Simulated assay, not measured.
Amino acid sequence: MTVAAEGVPVLDLRLACPAAACWSVTWIGLEHSRSALTVTILVAIGLLVSGVLAGVARGWQPPSRGRWFGMRTWFGTSLVVATAGLAFGTGVALLVRADRVDAHPLRQLDGGSVAVVLSATEDPRVSGANPDLVWVRARVHAADGRTVTPADVLVFASSQSDKWLGLRVGERVRALVTVRVPDGRGLVVAALTARGPPTQISEAPGYLRLAETVRSRFRELCATALGHRKAGLLPGLVVGDTSAGEATVDEQFRRAGLTHLLAVSGANFALIVGMAVLLAGVI
C-alpha cells in the first residue's frame, strides 16, 4: 500500500507478478516433470529476450508524464523483464538442484541399510502425530565409507534416544540407517530411518556453537519470564527456534495458515536484524 501525491492510498501490486512467477515456477519444478520445467524456462527466456529488445528499442527511457499510454507501455515492458528474469533464474536453480538430487548415489541404495555421515541443519523435532518418533532435517556427507556430494535428507528416529533429540545443528555424526527414496520430485534426496543412536564424529563449527549458546540463553529467559505456551512460542517468532513449541500450538498455526511465523519469518528476522546491527556498528 502506497500513498499518492494527493494523499489517497493506492494499492501497490508491482511485486505481485514477480512473486507469482517465482511461486509458479517452483510449483512446476517440484510437482511436475523435468520437461515441464524446461518448457517453462524456455518460455521465460522468450519473454525476457522480447522484453529486453523492446526496452532497447525504446532506449529504456520512461516517457513524459503527459503520455499516459507510453508510460504504461514502458512500465509493462520493465515488469515483463523483471518477472521473466526471476522466473528464469528460479527455474534454472531448480533444474540444477533436481539433476543433483536424481543423480545422487544415495538414491541407488533405496530399501537398503548403510552407514552414513551427516550433520543436522535444523533442531530435531518430536512428531506431533507420533510422540515416539523424532525427525530432523540433515545433510549427508558420506555413505558406506565414501564421500558423497552433500545433499539434504530427512532422518527419522526413536524419540527415546537422547542422542537424536540432543543432536545440535552442524554436529557431524555417523549412524546406521535404512534408505527410502520419497515419492515425487522434491529436493530431498532420501528419507533415512535410523537403526540406532548416532555416534559423534566432530562438534559443530564455532560460529554455530555460539549461535546455539545465544538461542539456549534466550530459551532460558523465555522460560523464566513467560508462561509455558508463550515460552515455547516466542523463540520461534523471534529466531525461528521451535524446539520448545507445543504440538497443539503448531497445529493451530498450521490451520490458520501462519506456520511461516514460527520459523521462516523468525529466522529471516534474526538474520536481517543481525546484519543491520553489524552494518550499523561498522558505519
Rank of each mutant, 00 (worst) to 15 (best):
P63M: 06
L48Y: 11
F75Y: 15
V56E: 05
S33Y: 05
W23K: 06
L79E: 13
G89S: 12
F75Q: 08
A21H: 03
R58P: 11
R67L: 08
H32W: 06
F69W: 15
T83Q: 06
E31H: 03
V80E: 06
P63W: 01
W27C: 05
G55K: 14
R72T: 15
L47V: 15
V80I: 13
R65D: 12
L37A: 04
E31M: 09
G70S: 02
W23I: 15
V56P: 02
P62Q: 04
A84H: 12
G70Q: 13
S50M: 04
W60N: 04
G91D: 04
M71L: 09
A54M: 08
V56T: 11
Q61N: 12
G59R: 07
G59E: 03
V43T: 00
A54D: 09
T40V: 00
A44R: 04
R34P: 14
A82H: 10
R34M: 12
L42F: 01
M71R: 14
T38V: 14
A36M: 09
I41M: 01
G55L: 15
R34S: 08
I41A: 00
V43F: 15
E31K: 13
R67V: 02
G76N: 14
W60T: 09
L53F: 13
S35Y: 01
W23M: 13
L37P: 01
G29E: 00
Q61R: 13
R34G: 10
W68T: 09
I41K: 00
I45S: 05
I28T: 15
A82M: 11
G55N: 13
G46S: 13
T26D: 02
W27Q: 07
F75C: 08
S24Q: 06
G46M: 11
A87T: 07
L79I: 12
A21T: 14
S35F: 11
R34T: 10
I41S: 01
W74Y: 08
L53M: 12
A36V: 00
A21Y: 09
W27K: 04
T40I: 03
A36W: 12
T83S: 06
I45V: 02
